[in-house]
Amino acid sequence: MSNDNNSAFEPRIIAFVCNWCTYAGADLTGTSRIKYATNVRIVRFPCTGRIDFLLLLKAFASGADGIIVSGCHPNDCHYTSGNFHARRRWMVFRSLLDTLGIDTRRIRYSWVSAAEGAKWADLVNDTVATIRELGPYNEYKKVADYLGKEAGDE
């Protein structure tokens, strides 16, 4: 375990979601008054196809302990194929991250439709539990801090 006082640890989760399915699904979670952990911060994109994976690295560098990327189900993309592109890019990107030594368990890739309010709550709670188990992502922060200092020294 990377952390001794995991009980006090509140993971910081950032969620990159598409406007048409998952954002609307998360709205439905609210409309249905289903409760979930407060740890998540949602960033709205038009489509998961828009999500540049540098943004994921940026999130880790800024202090995120875990990331959710969620869009429409296969074939349901509002823009026909954005979610497929995102999926394919994720496949490639994941192995790249692995090679770079980034803990890909901290990135959760999912599909939540506009009708799946309960699924969104489950996804968040489940991710929070997983990340709580993994502990704070100090390794990445250290690297980021170091790089930041290097950059500042120049």
Partner: peptide, 29 residues
């Protein structure tokens, strides 16, 4: 306005109005 092209662009020459790289990075940070 799906923005798939933005994520695909290797030279970061294409951007999505209203959801630009600058905006999104700042929001995440």
């Amino acid at each position: 306005g799906c923005g798939t092209c933005v994520a695909f662009c290797r030279s970061k020459s294409i951007d999505l109005q209203g959801f630009s790289n600058q905006q999104m990075f700042a929001e995440v940070e």
